[in-house]
Design a protein around this nucleic acid. Structure first.
Lengths: 226, 226
DNA sequence: ACCTGAACACCGTTCAAGT
DNA sequence: ACCTGAACACCGTTCAAGT
């Protein structure tokens, strides 16, 4: 307002927290967690490494901020559905897709316990759990179960993506190779894993993820007489 | 047996994978993830850094192996209870306690998706889910939900412990400081989080964890007519 | 077969000095 | 107030050389 420099200037804008975060996201997206380096970052931004420290505290701060930016967009993109239950499902799926598109987010979210990105999710989930009519005393446990589950899935998927990349495989080939390992385990010692080897490669992660959400939601009972 | 060197010799045993893993666990336990360094490790083992590479592939291999050792002990310590449901609860609690005692395990487990430690858990959980009578087609989703949830909680708790350590606080003081932050958030924008600030510091993580397990277990329906 | 330890190619972070 | 870029104190990993 008033005399502020227009913040939408399209060329050589001065360094800012936002520009740093965008650059960090780009580096993370196409290099994984190892791709984010202060040297790569400062090169991409055309500045010195030290300049970045004027705007961010340290690397962990940067990673959390980048994670938060992705979470904000994912949450904003989730339409509010007709029922609280549908809204929670949509939110969960939106996060799943965001973590799938940005494989590093699952891990970042995991390390950001109690910080902005998780607080955002707690708030969103909490509002819907309330709307569901869950008793006050049970709300926190419900929200925390949902959050932990979502973050757990995201983190595991991120790890899979990372291993696949480390071995120079695409995700599906990587899962097939894991399935192959499982298949060769002694069925005496590993009856379940051995039997599941086939399912592993075939199954739809997104559907499995949603099945877990439904399991959790199914256990939430609205408080009666209120 | 026979001519093998006695493997329980108490002094200056030669380097071995097991000795390396034990030393790694000790370093991780009292220095967190940053405490595990090839230099610290080789010093503790009285060898050169390069010697370690004869026995392990790389740092990630070492971390996964250390994690696996902890998981093996935790799983072995879990008595088989009367019912599959009770066994699953006991296993989950055993893991929770192990991850609590070794704050780095949650994070290591998270990064070990599809590898030995998680496969072990999948097998144990799977056997009990089967014993529960869950239909074949639903078993994988059930096991994966349980695993993801357990790992999610462990990872988040590990992150909390790490932040607490980084700020030089004990866990409870750290949670109180987070609760303080939540309390000062605008209740207009953060109604749920603001309301939960009190609960955060007071609540029993272990009980909340178990509540989530029960939520998941409650949704598992034995197949009928079988 | 197993171990040594110096060397390599990186990191994140700091800080005097500039504008 | 904001940026520079050299310097510092580390990393994980490799590899010729030893036994």
């Amino acid at each position: 307002m008033g005399t502020t420099k227009r913040s939408t200037s399209r060329r050589e804008e001065s360094l800012s927290r936002d520009r740093i975060i965008e650059a960090a996201i780009a580096l993370l997206d196409d290099g994984g967690e190892d791709g984010l380096t202060f040297r790569a970052l400062s090169e991409r931004l055309g500045t010195g490494a030290g300049a970045i420290y004027w705007h961010i505290a340290d690397k962990s701060d940067l990673l959390t901020a980048a994670c938060d930016a992705v979470v904000v967009r994912a949450v904003a993109a989730c339409a509010r559905e007709a029922s609280p239950r549908a809204t929670i499902r949509a939110l969960a799926l939106g996060l799943f897709d965001a973590m799938d598109a940005h494989a590093w987010v699952g891990s970042a979210l995991m390390h950001a316990a109690g910080q902005l990105p998780t607080v955002r999710l707690i708030e969103r989930l909490g509002q819907q759990v309330r709307a569901l009519g869950v008793a006050d005393a049970a709300q926190w446990a419900a929200v925390s179960a949902l959050l932990h589950y979502i973050v757990g899935v995201g983190g595991q998927n991120a790890a899979n993506a990372r291993h696949a990349q480390a071995h120079g495989l695409v995700r599906s080939d990587f899962l097939e190779s894991v399935a192959g390992t499982w298949e060769h385990l002694d069925p005496q010692d590993w009856p379940f894993v051995h039997a599941m080897a086939g399912e592993l490669a075939a199954h739809d992660d997104r559907a499995d993820f949603l099945a877990g959400i439904d399991l959790l939601l199914g256990g939430l009972k609205p408080a009666r007489g209120r």
